[in-house]
């Protein structure tokens, strides 16, 4: 077995592009679910809107990339308003139903034949829409060390991506530790009580939905740019639930937990996959037990078992406070 290769692949994935995407998606969910108690099951929709908003204006309308970013933020705000206006006055479960449906509507519209010419149908959009971004890349060659390996483009995405994550985490940290953040947590606990103190709960829930959605759309920007392609089926419900997994893994309502959660998530997935793959190719794992083409499914099974164990032995996640979680029972 090539242990160095396993380590290199695993560490590269731990700080890699996918970790950044999932961290951003989960930071948005942390705003919604962790701090405000909004059950948004449509985070994939926000990522899809971010991704398509980067690709479509550049490819189909020839606009500059920075305009596409602004369009992406604008569109995610509009999407949040569409979700929030009818549901935020209602009980929390209505938002959950509406968001899960709305994210699927976004995906189905994106892959529909009607908009084939602009949105690319089920094949999505592939093209050099990120050219302006990669033109700024100061790295002529990639990084190739025994423990980390990125090609030149990925290295640029990873560095700018982590700067973006750092900026967003910093802003989140200030916000959740302000009276605004206190108000958000209060809404999570009991919105009627917050209303009785003269606060416009609806307005604040809307702010939370928009902020979390825009952060999710930033994840979509990274997703689209890193692959120079947008595939509608990458933005299915699985993406939302993986983002929730990342959030709960780290521990909800902690600023850093989505970042650490995403790192652990991708560390485990790639590590398990690489170990199994090496085991199979070197005949350490017999063929009748696991075949080469079963590895990518089995890694998710093992991942699932790992998560179950985490929920049993550390339900508060990595950073969560068990004492605080126990209070959730509303004794």
């Amino acid at each position: 077995m090539d242990f160095l290769f396993i380590i290199q692949q695993t560490l590269s994935a731990t700080i890699g592009v996918n970790t950044i995407i999932f961290a951003l998606a989960a930071i948005g969910l942390n705003m919604h679910f962790g701090y405000t108690g909004l059950l948004n099951f449509g985070q994939a929709g926000f990522l899809a809107i971010g991704a398509y908003s980067v690709a479509v204006p550049v490819i189909s309308f020839g606009l500059p990339l920075w305009v596409a970013f602004l369009i992406g933020i604008f569109n995610s705000v509009i999407f949040a308003l569409i979700l929030g206006v009818p549901t935020l006055r209602l009980r929390a479960d209505y938002l959950a139903i509406v968001t899960i449906a709305a994210a699927e509507i976004v995906r189905q519209i994106a892959r529909s034949a009607t908009f084939n010419s602009t949105l690319g149908g089920s094949d999505g959009i592939t093209g050099k829409f990120g050219a302006e971004f990669f033109a700024l890349n100061p790295f002529k060659s990639g990084l190739n060390t025994p423990i980390l390996r990125f090609n030149a483009n990925d290295l640029w995405v990873v560095i700018t991506g982590w700067l973006l994550v750092a900026l967003i985490v910093f802003l989140m940290w200030i916000m959740v530790n302000s009276p605004w953040g206190r108000l958000m947590r209060a809404i999570r606990e009991d919105e009627d009580a917050v209303r009785s103190l003269g606060k416009n709960v609806y307005l604040y829930k809307m702010q939370s939905l928009i902020i979390g959605g825009v952060i999710g759309a930033c994840g979509g920007f990274v997703y689209a740019l890193s692959r120079q392609s947008v595939q509608p089926d990458n933005y299915g419900t699985a993406l939302t639930f993986f983002a929730y997994t990342v959030l709960i893994l780290g521990g909800a309502a902690r600023v850093f937990s989505p970042v650490i959660g995403a790192m652990i998530f991708w560390f485990l997935i790639v590590f398990i996959e690489q170990v199994l793959r090496q085991g199979v190719t070197n005949n350490l794992i017999p063929d009748w037990l696991i075949g080469a083409n079963q590895v990518s499914q089995i890694r998710f099974m093992l991942m699932g078992i790992g998560l179950m164990l985490l929920m049993i032995y550390r339900p508060q996640g990595i950073f969560g406070d068990k004492k605080e979680l126990a209070l959730d029972a509303k004794a």
Binding site: E189, D190, S196
Partner: peptide
């Protein structure tokens, strides 16, 4: 919330303390 701002503030039969604050 506007009623509360006008100066009429209520409490609840089932106490609404904000538990995790």
């Amino acid at each position: 919330h506007k009623v509360a701002r006008l100066g009429m503030v209520r409490t609840f039969q089932l106490t609404k303390a904000l538990y995790r604050l």
